[in-house]
């Protein structure tokens, strides 16, 4: 018996912070079940780094024909690893690729699946885990009753926990079926922090009046190493790309810090960003609903506050470098 974690790596073979988070989480569940943790990786180059988070055993698949993500192929590899290691719990990051492949794995293993888990299981028998529901407006305690359980972990919910073990890495050579889906082209911005990975997100709303005013938002984001985001009307108006739309019907945000500029705080907006740990609002209207959801707020005009904040942060960064 074991707990299996799938730790995704980038196309360069590097792990993201969330890979360490799923490994940390898997280690804790393995302890709850008094069993071992096995971490599966595909074309990863830094497998040793997983030992820091409790990976006693790493199975690495290195195949040159697996250079780009393919959900069905990856799901089949995870299934084969789960069977080989007699895994009773399989943990997959609830990120964009993890959400794609986990349901496929669940069917292949005839397993119940709970996505977007936010805590370790409150009990392992029955196996019950708390997960996000109603677009962050609530949680449900979900019991998985199948022999094998699939758990998707929501970002930034458990955290990265150091737990150094002496681990080993083995090569794993599963059968790889040819995929029917062909990747024609990929467009990816490099060097820019994405909303999914960002520790800090700077977000602008309709209060910013027009796309020409986003220069200061981007400057603020650059200083903070943050991703930029926006409210739904801003993307609907074409001021910003759809990929920046956050909220109940856009991307979820679970950053450490979320700064909302000229955003009123409609229920659908708040639902999507509520998992962020610290929220700051900057709005001219002291009655804006966002102030009820935020931790810190400035009642003021963004066109004055943001340039001042940028200057102050430059000073701060220079002193704290």
């Amino acid at each position: 018996m074991s707990v299996l974690v799938f730790a995704e790596s980038t196309s360069e073979g590097k792990f993201k912070k969330s890979s360490f988070e799923v490994t940390s989480y898997g280690k804790k569940i393995a302890e709850q079940l008094s069993t071992n943790l096995v971490v599966l990786t595909i074309n990863a180059t830094e497998n040793d780094s997983l030992y820091n988070y409790g990976a006693e055993k790493v199975l690495n698949v290195s195949k040159t024909n697996l250079t780009s993500f393919n959900a069905k192929t990856y799901a089949s590899i995870i299934k084969q690893a789960a069977i080989k290691e007699n895994a009773k719990v399989v943990i997959i990051d609830s990120n964009i690729n993890g959400l794609y492949l986990a349901p496929i794995v669940a069917v292949k293993l005839n397993a119940g699946y709970a996505s977007n888990a936010v805590e370790i299981p409150s009990s392992v028998s029955p196996f019950t885990v708390k997960r996000k529901a109603f677009s962050n407006k609530a949680f449900n305690n979900c019991t998985i009753s199948t022999e094998i359980k699939i758990v998707g972990l929501a970002k930034n919910s458990y955290g990265v926990v150091e737990n150094l073990v002496s681990g080993t890495t083995e090569d794993f050579s599963p059968e790889i079926a040819e995929s029917n889906i062909k990747v024609e082209s990929v467009e990816q911005t490099t060097g820019k922090v994405t909303i999914a990975d960002a520790d800090i997100v700077v977000s602008g709303g309709r209060g910013l009046k027009g796309p020409e005013n986003w220069g200061m938002v981007e400057e603020l984001a650059t200083i903070l190493g943050a991703a930029t985001a926006c409210s739904k009307p801003v993307s609907d108006l074409g001021w910003r790309p759809h990929s920046e739309h956050v909220g109940q019907t856009g991307k979820p945000v679970a950053s450490n810090l979320y700064i909302a500029i000229g955003i009123s705080g409609a229920i659908q907006h708040l639902a999507g960003i509520n998992s962020s740990k610290v929220k700051v609002v900057i709005n001219t209207d002291a009655e804006a609903p966002f102030f009820k959801a935020a931790d810190y707020g400035i009642v003021g005009d963004a066109f004055e506050v943001i340039p001042n904040l940028i200057e102050k942060l430059k000073e701060f960064k220079a002193n704290n470098a």
Partner: peptide, 15 residues
């Protein structure tokens, strides 16, 4: 059924 919900919770009240 492979999964079921036994209870719900609301987020903790914010300061």
């Amino acid at each position: 059924l492979k999964t079921s919900t036994n209870s719900f919770e609301k987020p903790a009240a914010k300061s």
